[in-house]
């Protein structure tokens, strides 16, 4: 199996994206490109009335409800970019880290984010993995 390399992208890819907020929206946009998020999206992000830090926004007219999710302490989210994807399965792949984040906004379509959402629950795995991989201390 091919090896995957992950490198710092400081010199290779634009680092302007540093510190931008990460938004996870409940749809798939069939594109991989820059998007005018602050113009078209952030402009309309508002706090939902009478709610506890739930946010509202719209994407292409669809109503969204969002929540800021903090990554567990000691973890970092990374956004990777691959300049050229090899055309076979055996060559090594190179990814550049273009951004890191400690929190992201998780959006649902017309549904308040709760602990029952898959994305939020997926973070449980981190704790379980820690427990599974922790060295066993003999007493």
């Amino acid at each position: 199996m091919a090896t995957i390399h992950i490198q710092s992208g400081k010199n290779s890819v634009n680092y302007q994206t540093k510190n931008v907020k990460i938004q996870s929206i409940p749809c798939k946009i069939h594109a991989d490109c820059d998007a005018k998020v602050s113009q078209y999206f952030n402009t309309y992000v508002k706090e939902k009335k009478d709610s506890d830090s739930i946010l509202t926004a719209s994407f292409r007219g669809y109503p969204l409800e969002g929540k800021e999710i903090q990554l567990p302490k000691g973890y970092k989210g990374v956004i990777l970019h691959e300049s050229v994807r090899p055309d076979n399965d055996t060559d090594d792949r190179k990814f550049y880290c273009v951004n890191t984040f400690d929190s992201f906004t998780y959006w649902n379509w017309n549904k308040t984010p709760t602990g029952n959402d898959k994305m939020i629950k997926a973070l449980d795995w981190i704790k379980i993995a820690e427990a599974l991989h922790a060295p066993i201390e003999e007493e």
Partner: peptide, 8 residues
């Protein structure tokens, strides 16, 4: 806009 579609 290719991604967001239209203004509000």
């Amino acid at each position: 806009d290719m991604v967001f579609g239209y203004p509000m």
